[in-house]
Design a protein around this nucleic acid. Structure first.
Lengths: 168, 168
DNA sequence: ATAATTAAGTCAATATGGTTGACCTTAATT
DNA sequence: AATTAAGGTCAACCATATTGACTTAATTAT
C-alpha cells in the first residue's frame, strides 16, 4: 500500500462523516417508526405498546424484569402499557413454574396477528434496503451498528439461535 | 459463480436477518441518545431541545418551516422548545432580508458550546464504531441506512458540500 | 424458622413532548 | 385588493416517561 492515508485507521475520521452517521440514525429511526405508528393508531395503541408487543413476540416467555432491561424504562411506565395489553388480550401471562413470582409473557393469537402487521412493514423496509445495498453492505451495517450499541447489550442482537443457547 | 444462491438477490431474505436489523436500530438509537440525555438534564433541557440545537447548528440560517420538515412535528410543538431556546439565548434569530416573514435561526456562541458538548459524545461513539468496523463496513452502513430513509429525505443525508449546492 | 431479597404490582404526583383546533399578524405574491 | 405563506399563540388534551413510597407473595440465605 503506497498511500498510507487510505487506511481508515490512520486518517482521522472527519467530523462530516460522523455527523452523517448521526443524521442517518435520526432519519432512519424517524421513518422506520412512522408506518407502525399509523397502524397502531387504528387500534388505539401507541409506540410503547409496539415495543412491548415486539419484544414479547421475539422472546416468548420473557418476564417483566427482562423486558424492563431491554426497554430501559421504569416498572411504572411499563405497567400502564402492559396492563392494557393484558386487558385487551394481546398478551397472555402465566406463572413460571420454577419461580412462581415470575410471570412469563407471551403473545396471544390476536397479539401475533398484530405483531405481524406491525413488524412486516418494518421488515419490508429492511428487505428493500438490504436488497438494494447488497450482502456486503448489510454485513457492514451490522458491524457498525453493533459498535454503536453498548457492549453489555450486544449479545441481544446476535442471531436468535445463539441467544437461545445463552438463555438461563 | 457456481452457487447461484450465494447471490443476495436470489436468496430470500430470512426473517431472522430482518428482525436483527430492526433490533439493531432500536438498541443503537436507545444507546446513542442516552449520553446526551444525561447532559441535557444538567441544563434543564430535553431531547427535543437537542434535536433543535443539532439541526440549527448543522444548518445555520434554517427557517422554522424547514426545521419542521426535518423534525416532522407540529409548529406548536416546536414552538415551546424553540421559544425556550431563544429566551435562554442558545439560539438567535434574524429576519431573512429577502423575505422578512422568514426568520433565520442560528446558534449563539453559548449554543455552539452546548451543541458541541452534546454532539461530541455521539461523534465519539460513531468514531469508535467506524474505526472498529473499518472503512468498507462504514460504506455498507451508509448504503443500508440510506435505503431505510424515505426517498424524499435521502438528499438531506448527503455530505454537506453537496447539500449546500442544492440550497435555494 | 426467621430474615432478607427479589419479582411484580400499585398509588400518587409530576414532567416532557407530542397532538388538534382556532385564531392572529405580517409580508409576499397574484 | 385579495389571497397565500410564514410565523406565532392560546387552550385543551394525550401519551409516555419520571420519582418516591409502599404492598404482596415467593424464593433464598442465615
Amino acid at each position: 500500500m503506497v498511500d498510507l492515508n487510505s487506511n481508515i485507521d490512520t486518517i482521522p475520521l472527519r467530523e462530516e462523516d460522523l455527523r452523517q452517521g448521526i443524521e442517518l440514525l435520526f432519519y432512519a429511526y424517524r421513518d422506520f417508526t412512522s408506518e407502525p405508528d399509523t397502524i397502531l393508531n387504528k387500534y388505539d395503541l401507541g409506540r410503547a405498546h409496539h415495543r412491548v408487543i415486539y419484544f414479547v413476540g421475539r422472546n416468548p416467555g420473557i418476564t417483566v424484569t427482562e423486558l424492563l432491561e431491554i426497554l430501559r424504562i421504569t416498572k411504572q411506565s411499563l405497567s400502564r402499557v402492559l396492563s392494557h395489553l393484558l386487558e385487551t388480550n394481546f398478551i397472555n401471562q402465566r406463572a413460571d413454574l420454577a419461580d412462581r413470582r415470575r410471570k412469563q409473557l407471551t403473545l396471544s393469537d390476536k397479539g401475533k396477528v398484530l405483531e405481524h402487521e406491525l413488524t412486516s412493514t418494518q421488515m419490508d423496509r429492511f428487505a428493500r434496503a438490504y436488497r438494494e445495498a447488497g450482502a456486503e453492505a448489510v454485513e457492514g451495517f451490522r458491524r457498525v451498528l453493533i459498535g454503536i450499541v453498548e457492549p453489555e447489550d450486544r449479545a441481544n442482537v446476535r442471531p436468535a439461535a445463539i441467544r437461545a443457547q445463552n438463555r438461563r
